[in-house]
Amino acid sequence: MAVSPPVCDFGALWHDFRLPDTDGRTCSLSDIAGPRGTLIMFICNHCPYVQSIIDRVVRDARQMQAAGIGVVAISANDADEYPQDGPDQMRAEAARHGFTFPYLYDETQAVARAYGAECTPDFFGYNAKGELQYRGRFDISARTPGPSGARRELLEAMLQIAETGKGPENQVASMGCSIKWKTA
């Protein structure tokens, strides 16, 4: 079932975290925050919406990082119910696609809940002060990749945030698979 998160709550502050990466090292927000902005994205391995854009995400993350934007991916899916989203598979996925950013596992799902993440992919773009400026889609892609020349909405927004501290007023919400929450 496709889920679409709410529009950007401009100015909402980011939430600190400490999560393990795919090599078992602990990574915090201060470890990844960029001097000109930070992108926190909630993704997972099995979601067709993520798979349709993952190579483009890696391409654009390189450009963001070169512009002083910190980038991190977090998987919060219940790996007991969805073992393909567990840490070992995350490590393989990061290697397969050449991630240049940490891929963290939110086993307790506390970080995803703090951010209000709802789907994969769900993008949270912050300015250098840690204020939310973008909560939109990557591009026009859905379960299948959009055209190769599709407008790079996330990249454009993050570069604008890096330059001005403000995100675009008009944003199209991301769409993807619901986060696979643990049952109580």
Rank of each mutant, 00 (worst) to 15 (best):
S4I: 12
P5T: 04
V7P: 05
C8A: 11
C8M: 13
D9K: 13
F10Q: 09
F10H: 14
G11F: 08
P20M: 01
D21F: 03
T22D: 01
R25A: 11
T26F: 13
S28Q: 12
D31Y: 07
I32V: 15
A33T: 14
P35A: 11
G37C: 07
T38Q: 06
T38D: 01
C44W: 02
Y49Q: 00
Q51V: 08
S52T: 01
I53S: 02
I54T: 09
D55P: 01
R56N: 12
R59Y: 06
D60T: 07
D60A: 05
R62N: 12
Q63P: 01
M64S: 01
M64A: 00
Q65H: 02
A67N: 01
G68H: 15
G68R: 14
I69S: 03
G70V: 00
V72L: 03
V72H: 06
I74E: 00
A76P: 04
A76Y: 02
A76F: 08
N77F: 02
N77S: 02
Y82I: 08
Q84F: 06
G86C: 02
P87H: 09
D88H: 15
D88E: 15
Q89G: 03
Q89F: 15
R91W: 02
A92E: 11
E93F: 15
A94V: 07
A94H: 06
A95F: 07
G98F: 06
P102R: 10
Y103H: 14
L104S: 01
Y105L: 14
A110L: 04
A110G: 05
A117W: 03
E118Y: 14
C119H: 02
P121H: 12
D122V: 07
F123I: 11
F124A: 04
Y126E: 02
Y126W: 04
Y134D: 03
R137L: 03
F138N: 12
I140T: 14
S141L: 05
A142Y: 10
R143P: 08
P145S: 13
G146I: 02
G146T: 02
G146N: 01
G149N: 15
R152D: 10
I161A: 10
K166V: 04
G167C: 08
N170Y: 15
Q171G: 09
V172K: 15
S174I: 05
C177Y: 04
C177A: 07
K180G: 12
A184N: 07
